[in-house]
Computed example of a mutant assay.
Amino acid sequence: MQEYKIRIHDLPKDERPRERLIKNGASALSDSELLAIILRTGSKQENVINLSQRILKEYNIKQLSQINLTQLMKVHGIKESKAAQIAACFEIARRLETFKDEDKQKINSPEDVYRRIYPKIREQKKELFIELCLDTKNQIIKEETISIGSLNANIVHPREVFKLALAESAAHIIVVHNHPSGDPTPSREDIEITQKLVETGNIMGITLLDHVIIGDGRHFSMKEAGHI
């Protein structure tokens, strides 16, 4: 009489590796369960959990990370695709050990803001209102265009500005907009929105460091002009 081999789908749902990971998180799973998720399927002879357990009896995690595809394919039940899945998983882990975020640009002056933004907007015929979210070291963690206005007007509400700042856990913000006329001299509306942003930031604990207006090869700093 042929022996019955239990399949993954024969297990109760809450005992299947993938469902357990979704419910409890990856840290709750054993090594063999994690490997089973990577391999996805077993064979006619054994389910993927049994296959994973057998592999880890032959090789521990460190050994498994070091053997090449040819050696992996010598394990019964491991063919080229599964060997590639295992190798890719450990290669990602190795790269994570040496991974470094790209250096974040630090903003030290209105000139830094101008040099970053001007090349992106010099040909624009409409006003763009751009927000820079900064960390406690004044490094940029997010840059986003908040609104696009008409040829001579751009209406911005503090709600949109601080919604992004909160989402990014910003310590400070700088806002920037362009004057398509080429003259960066602030309008009355520019000064008013700056004051509203300062007031809102004071309430929310997020500092508006500057509002920089960019013209044609020139810029204006609300901070330097004493409006902040």
Rank of each mutant, 00 (worst) to 15 (best):
I61R: 15
I61Y: 06
K62I: 11
L64E: 14
S65Q: 10
I67V: 07
L69E: 14
L69V: 06
L69S: 12
L69Y: 09
Q71P: 08
Q71D: 12
L72F: 04
M73D: 08
M73E: 10
M73H: 06
K74W: 13
V75F: 03
V75T: 04
V75H: 02
H76V: 11
G77Q: 13
I78T: 05
I78A: 03
I78G: 03
I78S: 00
I78V: 10
E80P: 00
E80H: 09
S81V: 03
S81D: 07
K82A: 01
A83S: 01
A83P: 01
A83I: 03
A83E: 02
A84P: 00
A84K: 05
I86V: 03
I86G: 02
I86W: 03
A88D: 04
A88R: 04
A88K: 02
C89W: 04
F90Q: 05
F90A: 07
I92D: 07
I92C: 11
A93K: 09
R95V: 01
R95N: 05
R95L: 05
L96S: 04
F99S: 04
F99P: 00
F99C: 04
D101K: 09
D101F: 12
D103I: 13
Q105T: 08
K106C: 13
K106R: 14
I107L: 08
I107T: 08
N108T: 07
N108D: 12
P110V: 15
P110L: 07
E111H: 10
D112K: 04
D112M: 12
